[in-house]
Simulated assay, not measured.
Amino acid sequence: MAFYQFKREQLINSTISEVWDFISRPQNLKRITPNYMGFDIRTPDLPDAAYEGMIIAYTVRPLLAIPTTWVTEITHVVPQKYFVDEQRVGPYQLWHHEHHIEAVENGVLMKDIVSYSPPLGFLGRIANTLIIRRKLEEIFDYRTKAFEEIFPG
């Protein structure tokens, strides 16, 4: 099984509590996901903040507009510091996404660490090189711009 990590950091011009309130609210995921991904939350009546054990179901269309079911569980939460979501159903053999924030001199440093394993063994390794890694970069580039608009400097 191939294993990869994708890391991204962003400085956000805001306070730790404002950034935490935004990122810990599952409903805001759609605002930071490119429209072409067809991201829709399927879990009804989500609370205002993520909690350990929370299960969230989505439909996404990452490739060729083919709808894919994605179910994640929030496995760890330390308020105003970090939370972790892990795929339970979806396209990857492994998906573990850490969302960290920390107050710094000029705002909040947000760090994302995505550890993942594509499906299909050898074909998954090729897909990572040709498609998956680039798609992650594209999605996180979009998120960077979205956070700049949501929290203008």
Rank of each mutant, 00 (worst) to 15 (best):
Q5C: 14
F6H: 05
Q10F: 15
N13I: 08
S14T: 05
S14Q: 07
S17G: 13
W20E: 08
D21P: 07
I23P: 15
S24N: 05
S24D: 00
R25I: 05
P26E: 01
K30M: 07
T33Q: 05
T33K: 01
F39P: 01
D40M: 15
I41Y: 05
P44H: 13
D45P: 05
L46Q: 01
P47E: 06
D48C: 11
G53H: 08
I55T: 00
I55M: 15
I56N: 02
A57K: 04
Y58E: 01
Y58K: 00
R61E: 07
A65P: 05
I66P: 02
P67C: 13
T72M: 15
E73S: 03
I74W: 10
H76A: 09
K81C: 08
K81M: 12
Y82L: 12
Y82D: 02
Y82F: 10
V84H: 07
D85P: 15
D85C: 09
E86M: 12
E86P: 15
L94M: 13
H97G: 00
H97L: 12
I101Y: 00
A103S: 14
V104I: 07
N106C: 05
N106M: 13
V108C: 05
L109F: 08
K111N: 12
D112P: 06
D112Y: 06
S115M: 09
G121R: 06
F122Q: 13
L123P: 04
L123W: 06
L123F: 03
I126Y: 00
I126M: 06
N128T: 02
L130K: 07
L130I: 13
L136D: 03
I139Q: 04
F140I: 02
Y142V: 03
Y142E: 02
T144V: 07
K145C: 01
G153E: 09
G153Q: 15
